[in-house]
Structure formats: C-alpha cells, structure tokens
C-alpha cells in the first residue's frame, strides 16, 4: 500500500543509528524503538499506514508489526488527545488513593478512563505500576512523572497543560529526536 507518511530527516538519521545496534539480519530488533519514534512523529498513535511504513523501513511484513504493536500497552491503536494522562492503578498506588484520583479526573474531564475529551486535549488512561510506588499516587504524561498526586495537584497540572500544550506530547520526547 503506497503511503505518503515519512519520518523527518532527524528521525530518519536516528532510525539508521538504532538499526546499527543489532547484528546484520537482526534489524527486526529495532521494531520497538521505531514504533516509539513513529508514535512521536505521527500524532501520538499508530495508524495502519504508520505501521506499514515502519515495516518497510525494517524490511519485514506489516503483520509482524501489527502483532507486536497490539501486544504492548504503550502503543495507541487509535487517535488520542494531545496529552495522554496515564494514571497508575496498581496495588501500591491503589493503597494510596489512586482510585479516588481516577474518579476525580473522570468527573473533572467528563470522560471515562480510555476516552478522549471532546476538544481533543486529554485522553485518560489507566496503566499498571510505573515503578514509582514510593511517591504514589502517580501519573505519567509523555516522559514526565507526576508524583504524590492529590486532587489539588491534578487541578494545577491539568490547567498547566491546557494553557501551554500546543503539540501532542509523546513518550519519546521530540527534543530527543533532533540530532
């Protein structure tokens, strides 16, 4: 399938650098890092076109990309808001009130976990232990961890994003793609 998606020059340079980390013929190993790049470059989610493009870069079958992309929880299989709010819901965070934080955010944003606000600003997602249980409850947005969450803290974090975020925030932060 022809596609007009293409990585930026900086991202392509990084792609070639990453592929060289694995022995010849084992370039498929670069799939996970490339999917992170694709998500960063193409609007925060992996469309079929984006996955096909990654397959072509690695010279593997598209289905090899689909089966991997759907296995890992960080890849978004449908469009998401500019800020994906990933709130930890696992045991230690739950002990420290994560359930209340999620409920508060659902009410405040008027969406359920898994949904995106009508203005396309926020997607609320619950995730599993983020290895930050000592500062629970915790939420991740892009590469930033927000820790020791309270309802007041959530208010100010959301206000801050709403005021300042213009471009979608990705896990692989754009600033690291620039050579």
């Amino acid at each position: 399938m022809p596609s007009n998606l293409k990585f930026s020059d900086d991202a392509l340079a990084l792609v070639h650098k990453i592929i060289k980390r694995y022995p010849e013929g084992k370039q498929k190993s670069a799939l996970l890092p490339l999917l992170h790049l694709a998500q960063a470059e193409f609007g925060g989610w992996l469309s079929p076109e984006a996955m096909d493009y990654v397959a072509s870069l690695l010279n593997i079958l598209p289905v090899e990309v689909y089966e991997v992309a759907t296995f890992y929880s960080m890849y978004n299989m449908k469009p998401v808001g500019k800020c994906v709010l990933e709130v930890c819901r696992t045991g230690p965070c739950w002990l420290m009130g994560a359930e209340d934080i999620v409920a508060y955010m659902e009410k405040k944003l008027n969406i359920k976990a898994g949904e995106t606000t009508a203005d396309g600003m926020f997607t609320l997602k619950t995730v599993e232990c983020l290895a930050a249980c000592g500062t629970a409850p915790v939420m991740q947005v892009g590469e930033t961890y927000h820790e020791n969450l309270t309802c007041e803290k959530v208010d100010s974090i959301l206000n801050d994003y709403r005021a300042n975020v213009k471009e979608p925030i990705s896990h692989f932060a754009k600033k690291h793609i620039k050579g």
Binding site: R21, S29, L32, P33, L35, H36, F71, Y72, S73, M74, Y75, V127, E128, C129
Partner: peptide, 12 residues
Amino acid sequence: LDLYVHPGAGAY
C-alpha cells in the same frame, strides 16, 4: 565492547 540501551513498550 559495544553497549546499547533498548526500550520496551509496556508489558510486565
């Protein structure tokens, strides 16, 4: 020795 970092993508 060559040393590289490799990222996962969310899977316990």
